[in-house]
Write a protein that binds this DNA or RNA. Structure first.
Length: 507
RNA sequence: GGGUCGCUAGCUCAGCGGUAGAGCACUCGGCUUUUAACCGAUCGGUCCUGGGUUCGAAUCCCAGGCGACCCA
């Protein structure tokens, strides 16, 4: 039967309800119990036993097993499922002024409808805990059918495009988003307990900054100006530290105009945090505590599995300098090179590819790191002390010329967090901005211009500060063992699917 | 950006050059202990789109759309 016919049948049923003086779209149905509560409370009830209590439940009908004068419905609410035991004789006794009650629930309900039911609790002779229904109301008539009750919805594209259907029929999807909420709540609780204040900063900016990324461009009509969606929260949060807030953070949406993959969605959630009077060594410890707190919110152990790989999140985590890590894999001691040409020759001899574009030893070191080390860092590892060329906002290393006090955390070969002792010297910061601006002028679409107001803020004085940023979506992927970022984003970005002429007219 | 795979009924899938199929769902009939309920009978199609080859295309070819995965 075509979907229009299925829909027409259900519209007809809704009309029949109206003809009986009932609404197919009810207003309220107070419940006394959720499914999981009943399952827990009556876990020990023996088969065939009934408890003379009055309970009220509500949920979506997921399955109907209808006999002549008896029916079993599977009702699903947010917590789980409970069976409804529907007995014609019970309705005749309990709803005597409504003689069509049993016929109504048998004839006019479908899988997908929302139903409210009241009755006692009974475990059937076959052992299924049930609500023995004495009264019910159809709360919302669904017009579209649910996917196959056995196979469910497996088409990946449909699951993303119609996440509401995915959520109805795939419990593990509901579970992922429940866990995501638990993790973000635990992170906020932890930071709040450490004296951090969450302050929201602008999404719309006249100049994007704080990261290397292409921004989205938008437009303000009455101001007649181009605006950019933020690519980081960094520069505003540091302004707040200038203003006197010693510990601030923001967990929020960031927008980067880049490709889409299993690890990239154009809008994603980041957390950035800044702590005055601390340095990057302090922050690494905080990151360990933060991620352990997040993991403990949803997992029984810090020994976890990601896509079949065993990961141990028990701190402390290994800390290794970028120079050491690269030397370990390539045998190259980058600090020994006194010219870029010599470094490139050695790198090529060591088998590195596509290094022609590297215009400094620091960038070459980073390239060597990405090619040889990054993917091998499976267990949590802090890589520290980065080249200044790729770290325009980080403070120079207190003892290593050419390096900055920066760390990146890698887990399963992926960058998970990035932090550094913040650059607080406004003159140095201006020079680094100008170097970035020169790259932008030369055509680097990911480079950003000079943020004059941020420099002014620095001239008023930023105390010694450490900052850290982390991608929340990727953290959830790790903790929930999800292979794709789309599995942890409720409504991932997809291209519109409609292409036929008729449908385009309706857009 | 490149490669591989996929798109057929509401859902899950088969069919791979000769009249478009199955299971579930839906509709009708039967049924008071089912849980993928069962038994019987119906109903249901832009085979992603557009070209091409062919007597004949869901099937072969070309182009495009959307998606998945891998690589950069």
């Amino acid at each position: 039967m075509a979907s229009d016919d299925l829909r027409a049948t259900r519209l007809e049923k809704a009309d029949q309800l109206r003809q009986q003086g009932l609404t197919p779209y009810a207003y309220r149905w107070p419940i006394t119990h959720h499914a999981a509560q009943l399952q827990a409370q009556y876990a020990d009830l023996a088969a065939g036993e009934e408890v003379a209590v009055d309970v009220a439940v509500a949920g979506r009908i997921m399955a109907r097993r209808v006999f002549g004068k008896l029916a079993f419905f599977t009702l699903q609410d947010e917590t789980g499922q409970i069976q409804l035991y529907l007995d014609k004789k019970a309705f005749e006794a309990e709803m005597p002024d409504d003689p069509t009650a049993f016929d109504r629930i048998k004839q006019l309900t479908d899988a997908g409808d929302f139903l409210g039911a009241k009755g006692s609790v009974k475990r059937t002779e076959k052992g299924e805990l049930s609500v023995y229904v004495r009264y019910f109301e159809i709360l919302t008539k669904a017009l579209l059918p649910l996917p196959d009750k056995w196979h469910g919805l497996t088409d990946v594209e449909k699951r993303y495009r119609q996440r509401y259907v995915d959520l109805i029929v795939n419990p593990e999807v509901r579970d992922t988003f429940r866990k995501r909420a638990l993790v973000t709540a635990a992170i906020r609780r932890y930071l709040d307990s450490q004296g951090f204040l969450e302050i929201e900063t602008p999404v719309l900016m006249s100049e994007a900054g704080g990261a290397d990324a292409r921004p989205f461009v938008t437009y303000h009509n009455s101001l007649d100006m181009t605006l950019y969606l933020r690519i980081a929260t960094e520069l505003h949060l540091k302004r707040l530290v200038v203003g006197g807030f010693e510990r601030v953070y923001e967990m929020g949406r960031i927008f980067r105009n880049e490709g889409i993959s299993t690890r990239h969605n154009p809008e994603f959630t980041s957390i950035e945090m800044y702590q005055a009077y601390g340095d990057y060594q302090d922050m690494m410890t905080t990151v360990e505590e933060l991620i352990v707190t997040a993991a403990e919110a949803i997992l029984p152990s810090l020994k976890i599995s990601y896509q079949g790989e065993a990961i141990d999140l028990t701190p402390p985590w290994r800390r290794i300098t970028m120079h050491e890590a690269v030397a370990e894999k390539t045998g190259l001691a980058f600090s020994q090179f006194d010219s870029l040409a010599a470094a490139k020759a050695a790198a090529t001899a060591a088998g590195l590819k596509d290094i022609a574009g590297c215009d400094s030893i620091g960038r070459l070191l980073n390239e060597a790191f990405e090619q040889t080390v990054e993917a091998t860092l499976i267990q949590p590892t802090f890589v520290i002390d980065y080249p200044v060329e790729i770290s325009p906002l980080a403070k120079p290393h207190r003892s290593q010329p050419g390096l900055v006090e920066r760390f990146e955390l890698f887990i399963v070969g992926r960058e998970t967090a990035n932090g550094f002792s913040e650059l607080t010297d406004p003159i140095d910061q201006r020079q680094r901005f100008e170097a970035q601006a020169a790259r932008k002028a030369a055509g680097d679409l990911e480079a950003q211009g000079v943020d004059e107001d941020f420099l002014t803020a620095l001239e008023y004085g930023l105390p010694p500060t450490v900052g850290m940023g982390m991608g929340i979506d990727r953290l959830i992927m790790l903790l929930c063992d999800c292979a794709s970022i789309r599995d942890v984003i409720a409504f991932p970005l997809l291209k519109p699917e409609v292409t036929t002429g008729e449908s385009l007219e309706n857009l």
